[in-house]
Simulated scan of single mutants.
Amino acid sequence: MSDPISSIRNLGPAFEQACTQAGIMTAQELRDLGADEAYARLLQAGTRPHFIGYYVLVMGLQGRPWNDCKGEEKKALRERFDAIKASTSRAPESQLISDLDAVGVRVSASDLKPV
């Protein structure tokens, strides 16, 4: 059996679930893809871009604490994150959901109450 994604430092169950939705099933697959390709796949699958999430992934794949990223290294990672975000197109349905969220149209199941 392969190690779960959550076995990688800094990455928990929520990140593991996002990876599963992006078709990344194991820690080894995530390592093989590398941070940039994996993050692009997460964005394509509908994950909202978030710089901290990106650099936490980078630090985790390097076996470093999430908050170990500082100074020039953090600046360089920000440039990589911006490039990934700019070059990644989201699935049309993910963009629709994002747009609905932005205007407050979409509701969750917990918002619905039986009559």
Rank of each mutant, 00 (worst) to 15 (best):
K74E: 12
R64W: 02
A38P: 04
V115K: 13
Q28S: 12
E29F: 02
K85T: 11
S7C: 02
G104T: 05
K74P: 03
F81A: 03
E72Q: 10
E29P: 08
Q17M: 13
G53Q: 06
A102Q: 12
T20G: 11
R80A: 09
K113T: 15
L33C: 00
M1A: 07
N67M: 05
K85H: 03
A91H: 11
K74I: 03
P65A: 11
A109T: 13
L77N: 05
V107E: 07
V58M: 02
L96F: 13
L96S: 09
F51T: 04
S6P: 08
L96Y: 08
R80L: 04
L100W: 11
S2I: 08
D111W: 14
A83L: 11
L57T: 00
S108F: 14
L96K: 11
I24K: 03
F15K: 10
T47A: 09
E29K: 07
Q62Y: 06
F81V: 01
R41W: 05
K74R: 15
M59Q: 14
D82V: 02
Y54M: 08
E37F: 03
V105A: 15
I8A: 00
C69G: 11
S110Y: 10
W66C: 04
R31Q: 10
G34Y: 03
E72A: 12
R80W: 01
L77T: 05
T88Y: 04
P4R: 15
S6E: 15
S108Y: 13
T20L: 15
I84V: 09
M25H: 14
A22Q: 04
V107C: 05
L33Q: 02
I8P: 00
L33E: 01
R90N: 09
R90F: 12
A35C: 05
G34M: 03
A22V: 04
V58T: 06
H50Q: 09
M25Y: 14
Q28R: 10
A35T: 00
Q17C: 06
D3V: 05
E37H: 05
N10T: 04
E37T: 12
E37N: 12
I84L: 05
K75E: 14
V103I: 15
P49Y: 09
W66E: 10
Q62M: 07
D101R: 14
E79P: 00
L43K: 01
S94C: 14
L77P: 07
E73F: 05
E93I: 12
K70W: 10
S6T: 09
L57V: 01
G60L: 07
P4V: 10
T47M: 13
S89G: 11
K113D: 07
E37W: 06
R48M: 10
R31S: 08
S98T: 11
E72C: 00
V56R: 15
R106W: 06
D68T: 13
A102C: 08
D111N: 12
R31E: 12
V103G: 09
G63H: 01
E16V: 00
L30V: 04
M25S: 15
R41H: 04
A27M: 02
I97V: 13
G60Y: 09
